[in-house]
Design a protein around this nucleic acid. Structure first.
Lengths: 245, 245
DNA sequence: ACAAAAGTGTTCGATATACACCCATGA
DNA sequence: TCATGGGTGTATATCGAACACTTTTGT
């Protein structure tokens, strides 16, 4: 028995990554060639997304779809918004694309948006057919369907989360320096912070703990490394909420 | 031509109201009688919700559905989360109910949650067949399907919104006193505030403006009345956010 | 006159902001 | 020895929390 794909329901995933400098997003190339394969009719990008199965949990669908497109595993997803206007597929490119490949698409597709945070942008992405690449979030101009809008909403949600919960550490390596952490906050929130004041604040977060290890091989004073302790966070979370930087 | 209802997609609306004392929610009675109509098989409550039409915008569906059930008009809705697990309809009552009335329901129904805020709980609700009534939010115990979970999530979202945007005024009459406003914040956030400190804070909100009018017919010193000015809010909002991005 | 809620300021500790120099390392 | 980012403290302004009495009205 084959599972039935729902023609009117999809999941789109915004995969964020941080390369110690910029916030990036994983996009899939959407390239349509002419029948003879010689010329390109159009080429643009979309988020990682697809339709869900009839008997598939919504949250599991996000995991499966991203794995299908990128080979990435063990990602954690957070749902942020659902998009269901009637004009989601308005651009001519979208229409052409659907005519070519969209045998499972009904007139209006409702899509549930999820995002995930990856600790680096050098992961081994298995390109299964379509090209998948990282793009700086603030340089993304147009995307397929309403994916630009979806990306904006994901970012908005991420900014809120970052200031209320310790989600930023998912975008950092296990061991990180305070400068990296500061750069991350600056990249996502689009602000500049004073180094001393930033560190003063972090020093109050008991769950950001220094380890007996320093940076190596850098042409300057090596930085102290820190880790995020979920255990300490859980213990102290009731005492206070101080993520506002 | 008749419009086609989508069997796997619905909208559930959490209608909040404030009676100057408690936060309330509008619920629809779900009563199943035996065939002879003499005994009640079960009776419980659900949120206002229903399936959406194939050619219907998601946001418009919320408006239509609540109007169909209550006659209420001109409500503003805010989408907060989408529920799509496979076990949403697990309780025996849900199964029985669907067997009786659920000709349009597929195995897993994905539902998009919206909430709306009403300035009072004395509105003229037109009961179209099923009983609709207000219940204190913190006394709601069990609800049909996963509606309790949906209600919790809506509340959580409302609490966040209340602390970041001036949405609370939608739950107050046009002209309100500062004590009413304080009670509202206390009811939603589940906290107690100091009267003087609360007023100090409100006095910094330039968009909460006193009018030339006082409370009447109360057996104590009549309170100054205030209104919320969306215009002033919009003007000052940009000033406050101007260092972001 | 009494009951009931309205209205009003000050003090104190905590937190936010602004700001400049020396340090350790690899090249 | 130089370039690079790492690391540190203090002073001032602002904000939040605690706290008690007088005022105005209807009954």
């Amino acid at each position: 028995m084959t599972r039935k794909l729902l023609t009117n329901l999809s999941v789109d995933c915004v995969i964020f990554g941080f390369d110690m400098d910029q916030l990036k997003v994983l996009l899939v190339e959407r390239k349509l060639k002419s029948d003879d394969g010689k010329s390109i009719i159009f080429s643009d990008h979309s988020l990682t997304g697809y339709h869900i199965y009839e008997d598939e949990d919504l949250d599991s669908a996000a995991i499966r779809i991203v794995n299908d497109l990128t080979g990435l595993e063990n990602l954690k997803f957070e749902q942020f918004y659902t998009f269901g206007s009637l004009d989601r597929i308005a651009h001519p490119n979208d229409q052409i694309w659907i005519e070519q490949f969209g045998d499972v698409i009904s007139s209006r597709v409702l899509t549930v948006g999820y995002y995930s945070l990856l600790p680096n942008t050098n992961m081994n992405i298995i390109q299964k057919g379509r090209k998948v690449n990282w793009f700086p979030v603030d340089q993304v101009k147009e995307l397929a369907y309403d994916h630009k809008e979806i990306l904006e909403k994901a970012l908005e949600h991420l900014r809120y989360k970052l200031q209320n919960e310790p989600v930023g550490f998912n975008l950092l390596p296990e061991k990180f320096t305070l400068s990296q952490m500061q750069k991350l906050y600056e990249a996502i929130l689009g602000a500049k912070y004073d180094k001393r004041n930033f560190r003063k604040k972090v020093s109050q977060m008991s769950y950001v703990v220094p380890i007996k290890e320093k940076q190596q091989g850098v042409a300057h004073k090596p930085a102290q490394l820190y880790i995020f302790s979920p255990e300490v966070y859980e213990k102290t979370r009731k005492e206070r909420n101080h993520f506002f930087i």
